[in-house]
Simulated assay, not measured.
Amino acid sequence: MSENLRRYQTGKHLEAFILLLLMQKPDHGGHLLNRLTAVLPEEWTVDSGRIYRLLRELEATGCLHSTWVTEDSGAPIRQYQLTDHGRLRLEEWVREMEVRQQSLASFLATYRQIVNENSSGADA
């Protein structure tokens, strides 16, 4: 498989992105899927079923609160809103991602240093 065609699952970070988008504004599952697709790198795939399962899990743990909303003439939709507990969970994600970002930056810097050293040594 070509490196350009490689696809990545959102995995455990999907929760963080959902919390982040719901911090921006309350929303429903279908619209969240569209928003996620717009903000995530194109290499990432988003499983719509996983979004709905995660929304229910986050509500069960008190991170989200939902209400039924009827828009115009359509069927009612479940709209999710971030709770105070959800904001705290999002802050935990931010701290975790900051540490992960530092770790990845260290990894990449070390990798580049090794590659440069090996390239320089090949010329000698």
Rank of each mutant, 00 (worst) to 15 (best):
residue 45 T to C: 01
residue 2 S to F: 05
residue 17 F to C: 15
residue 5 L to K: 15
residue 114 I to C: 04
residue 50 R to T: 04
residue 13 H to G: 08
residue 19 L to R: 09
residue 93 W to L: 02
residue 92 E to D: 14
residue 69 V to K: 15
residue 40 L to V: 14
residue 99 V to S: 14
residue 71 E to D: 02
residue 25 K to N: 04
residue 40 L to H: 03
residue 79 Q to I: 01
residue 89 R to I: 01
residue 20 L to S: 14
residue 81 Q to S: 12
residue 110 T to D: 10
residue 75 A to V: 13
residue 69 V to H: 14
residue 79 Q to V: 11
residue 116 N to L: 05
residue 75 A to M: 15
residue 118 N to W: 04
residue 68 W to E: 13
residue 111 Y to S: 02
residue 62 G to I: 01
residue 30 G to F: 01
residue 39 V to Y: 10
residue 56 R to K: 14
residue 75 A to F: 12
residue 18 I to S: 01
residue 27 D to K: 04
residue 14 L to H: 03
residue 32 L to T: 05
residue 120 S to N: 07
residue 91 E to R: 11
residue 51 I to S: 04
residue 92 E to N: 13
residue 72 D to Y: 07
residue 15 E to C: 06
residue 109 A to T: 03
residue 84 D to I: 07
residue 75 A to P: 14
residue 66 S to E: 03
residue 4 N to H: 08
residue 41 P to Y: 14
residue 106 S to I: 06
residue 95 R to F: 08
residue 31 H to W: 08
residue 44 W to L: 07
residue 86 G to H: 03
residue 38 A to Y: 11
residue 84 D to E: 14
residue 38 A to P: 03
residue 59 E to K: 06
residue 98 E to V: 09
residue 27 D to E: 12
residue 35 R to G: 03
residue 35 R to N: 12
residue 9 Q to K: 12
residue 33 L to T: 01
residue 82 L to S: 10
residue 58 L to W: 03
residue 68 W to H: 12
residue 67 T to Q: 09
residue 38 A to F: 10
residue 95 R to V: 10
residue 34 N to T: 06
residue 88 L to A: 09
residue 11 G to Y: 01
residue 89 R to G: 01
residue 85 H to S: 09
residue 77 I to A: 13
residue 67 T to I: 12
residue 106 S to Q: 15
residue 43 E to Y: 07
residue 84 D to V: 13
residue 68 W to D: 09
residue 116 N to E: 11
residue 51 I to G: 04
residue 56 R to D: 11
residue 62 G to K: 03
residue 42 E to F: 07
residue 12 K to W: 09
residue 123 D to S: 08
residue 50 R to W: 05
residue 59 E to C: 00
residue 43 E to P: 00
residue 111 Y to R: 07
residue 89 R to E: 07
residue 80 Y to N: 02
residue 79 Q to P: 00
residue 102 Q to G: 02
residue 47 D to A: 11
residue 5 L to Q: 15
residue 114 I to Q: 12
residue 11 G to N: 02
residue 7 R to I: 13
residue 39 V to I: 15
residue 27 D to S: 14
residue 120 S to D: 07
residue 71 E to C: 00
residue 43 E to T: 05
residue 62 G to W: 00
residue 90 L to F: 15
residue 36 L to M: 12
residue 60 A to M: 05
residue 71 E to F: 09
residue 13 H to M: 09
residue 28 H to V: 04
residue 56 R to W: 10
residue 76 P to Q: 08
residue 112 R to L: 03
residue 87 R to N: 05
residue 28 H to M: 06
residue 107 F to V: 02
residue 3 E to C: 10
residue 87 R to F: 05
residue 88 L to N: 10
residue 1 M to Q: 15
residue 95 R to W: 08
residue 90 L to N: 11
residue 114 I to L: 11
residue 75 A to K: 15
residue 23 M to P: 00
residue 18 I to D: 01
residue 19 L to S: 05
residue 72 D to L: 07
residue 65 H to N: 11
residue 61 T to S: 08
residue 80 Y to A: 03
residue 53 R to A: 06
residue 119 S to R: 08
residue 47 D to Q: 10
residue 3 E to I: 14
